[in-house]
């Protein structure tokens, strides 16, 4: 019984701001189901005694000191902006 339906894909696409035509929806439904199938295989592993982790690297407590260093010049920062006004990034109106 597949877990990923076309409805799931449409919802994910909407949340990710992606436009998808029906062909793509069908294709991604299949792809995502395959990914899950692989995960189900991983689920068969016996993980008793293995601590849960949120990170794949054996690292912890990585940090830096609270020190100010120069960043980008404003012109550099705004260089990639699609539209600029009053030294700011200008974006289309937002409907909240």
């Amino acid at each position: 019984m597949p877990e990923i339906t076309e409805e799931t894909v449409k919802k994910i696409a909407r949340l990710a701001n992606l436009r998808m035509d029906p062909d793509e929806t069908a294709r991604f439904t299949e792809h995502l189901e395959k990914v899950l199938e692989y995960m189900r295989k991983l689920n068969q592993l016996d993980t008793t005694g293995i601590p849960q982790t949120a990170h794949v690297l054996p690292l912890q407590n990585v940090w830096r000191e609270d020190e100010v260093l120069p960043g980008l010049d404003r012109s550099e920062a705004l260089a990639g902006a699609p539209d600029v006004r009053d030294d700011c990034f200008r974006v289309p109106r937002i409907i909240e």
Binding site: R85, D86, D87, C88, F89, R90, V91, P92, R93, I94, I95, E96
Partner: peptide, 18 residues
């Protein structure tokens, strides 16, 4: 920073980001 009538969300024509 919302631009346009009233400066309020929704009625603004465009928004500026800092």
């Amino acid at each position: 920073i919302h631009q346009g009538a009233g400066g309020r969300l929704g009625t603004a024509g465009s928004s500026l980001v800092d």
